[in-house]
Design a protein around this nucleic acid. Sequence first.
DNA 1: CGGCATCCTGTATGATACTG
DNA 2: CAGTATCATACAGGATGCCG
Lengths: 154, 154
Amino acid sequence: MPIQLAGKAAERGNSPAGDHCPVDRAMQLIGSRSTMLLMREAYYGTTRFDAFAARVGMTEAVTAKRLRELVAAGLLERRPYQEPGQRTRHEYALTERGLDLMPALFALGQWGRKHLPHDGTPMLTHDACGAPVRVELRCTEGHRPRPEELVITS
Amino acid sequence: MPIQLAGKAAERGNSPAGDHCPVDRAMQLIGSRSTMLLMREAYYGTTRFDAFAARVGMTEAVTAKRLRELVAAGLLERRPYQEPGQRTRHEYALTERGLDLMPALFALGQWGRKHLPHDGTPMLTHDACGAPVRVELRCTEGHRPRPEELVITS
DNA sequence: CGGCATCCTGTATGATACTG
DNA sequence: CAGTATCATACAGGATGCCG
């Protein structure tokens, strides 16, 4: 049974042909599968090139290209570091901009966990209270609006 | 300045090479730009083929293909309907599964709005109280964990 | 209006081999 | 370990034209 949002949306004007909405821009920049998986790994705590490539299961070529893009886009930062007695290495660390993407990625995972077949996969937990963490729509007054209560405003 | 999540993540085992995490599956199914934009339109209230194609600015061929995929994946439902005196038409209506994806798409838009250049774009509002709606991470106890308070558990 | 078929280009990704 | 280079395949998406 299909569901309708509050219908005020339909009254808005057309999107311009060349679509410049934030969703579109974001998808063009970071919307590839490999990019998303690399970000997932970054949230998991991965920082080194080899670990990214191995965990995501991508070739080094793709890994290198996407990591370069993510650094260029400011979601990751490439920093040299040196362990005592070792040669200089580089790590890829999350920036604030990269961290801000976490809800989007996590929301996607939340959807997949609910609607697609999957193996047992890790959950996010709030360490302070031990409760599971989810992504949700919430208005600044703290309410959780039902779909029918949402309106799109210009 | 880079940011680290709680480090317990790094202790987990490798992801299998063929990655079956929900994020990956979701990206493979609905991760294309055109798919996301079509879903955005569905949330805006668009239901007819022509409106989808025009608003997203895609060719009919791509629109048809993606809509077919979205129906097959259960995010949209294709239903015949008839206006008085008109021939039978079809509309594409959101299913619950499709509606569940809204936080993910909205979170992506929220990120884009904050971190990418964009024109003035519509906002989501909670009709009951008039307050703007955002996507956020929240634990089931109602807290909003800071990034350092998040741990990944198996 | 609501599509489908065909051709074409660009990108995403894998496989493999090589370098500092 | 951290990549680069090259080749090959698959899919995304635009352009165009046809159909009921």
